[in-house]
Design a protein around this nucleic acid. Structure first.
Lengths: 217, 217
DNA sequence: CACTGTGAATGCATTCACAGCG
DNA sequence: CGCTGTGAATGCATTCACAGTG
């Protein structure tokens, strides 16, 4: 009964929610899998398959009721009537950017705790939150019952911060440091590596040249 | 002869380069696929398969020569003795963070052009670059022969910026706006969606509850 | 003997194609 | 008739397993 849902499908769920928002604002009552898929660059079959993992929401011949599907998917993603408490470690450029990013607040992600190792920064107020010293992270995380931890510290410090999150009871972590982190299996860990994005592109840009330049042996 | 290399493999290439850097600093001459794989959370078979797409670099019984493999992979990725000229559109929080990020400079990615639509920001200097008005993007991109474009503008403006990049001759774009962009097939487009990362985590955090709460029908 | 390089097997995700429904 | 929901087919990526090599 409990089938496995593809990881990629979960990410598309967020896309569906955004796209459905558009259709709702346009005042459409129903939308077909094809119309939902097209602007997202997907196929109609993919949309139907994805949705089918969660139940049967469509009506034959008509499509999906926009309002209902939007509300159901938001619910599944936990971004409806739900607040996720987030803690951020590392108030550098990237950390500050994430704190200021409106996209999170809108979706029910609320920063509750911010720490930094730099005593110069501790005590400063940013986005309405006072920066606490790193050493208090574990306790703050526990006290605020943080759901999600975000790591934007230098690579060397990333594992230590990660461990504090875990000891504090966090079950989901996003790591922006370019380092492989260890976490027990009960903790969901996602890595976002910005330099890696550019490097992958560089590969394709340089491909023709590099591969023919005697690399094959 | 020209076999297809998995997308995921390209991304792991960057990881191998980083890890090999560690081994080199530690003064190791050779490293086996197993030792290379382990700290990255991969299997030895995966490492061997990935490398085999590009040639035969190993020695039976010994492993891979660290220095040579590092140099070869860096070359394949185009991060050795190569400079990639980058343009950034949108100097908000995220844009500023990317400009300041050292990880890019180190790998041969150099920002040459920065634009913003806000006339308040135009003329300001950031990380040694003067912010130009958005309307000049296409021309600047062409004049500086930009390789990679980065989009950190609001969703509404993203497609317009993307079009300017493309008309200016850019062949690789990273888009941070949560919007699906259109680009011709010759242009490599990558999307990085930060809110989506958190939402995917929220799904797993909330799963147990949401799925049993009458969503199955 | 320790290790690579790679066919063959497996496991996932996407796409096809169509029966069934409103 | 238009569209969903889903078995079956396909296409990719990963893993297995082992012959081959220094």
């Amino acid at each position: 009964m409990k089938q496995q849902i593809p990881e990629a499908c979960i990410e598309r769920l967020s896309l569906y929610v955004r796209e459905l928002g558009q259709w709702q604002r346009r005042g459409c009552g129903f939308v077909s899998s094809r119309r939902l898929a097209e602007p997202l660059g997907l196929t109609d079959a993919q949309v139907r398959r994805d949705l089918s993992y969660f139940g049967q929401f469509g009506t034959s011949g008509r499509g999906y009721e926009v309002r209902r599907l939007l509300s159901t998917l938001s619910d599944i993603l936990g971004i409806q009537g739900r607040v996720w408490r987030v803690a951020l470690a590392g108030v550098g450029n990237l950390g500050s950017a994430l704190l200021a990013y409106r996209g999170f607040q809108n979706r029910g992600f609320v920063f509750k705790v911010v720490v930094d190792a730099d005593s110069q920064k501790v005590g400063r107020v940013i986005q309405g939150l006072t920066i606490a010293p790193s050493r208090q992270l574990e306790e703050l995380v526990r006290r605020h019952r943080i759901h999600i931890g975000i790591i934007t510290v230098p690579s060397e410090a990333a594992q230590a911060v990660c461990d504090q999150f875990i000891r504090g009871g966090v079950k989901a972590i996003v790591n922006f440091a370019p380092a492989r982190l260890e976490a027990p299996s009960g903790v969901r860990l996602r890595n976002v590596d910005l330099a890696l994005e550019l490097e992958a592109l560089a590969f394709y840009l340089g491909r023709g040249k590099a591969l023919t330049d005697g690399l094959q042996k």
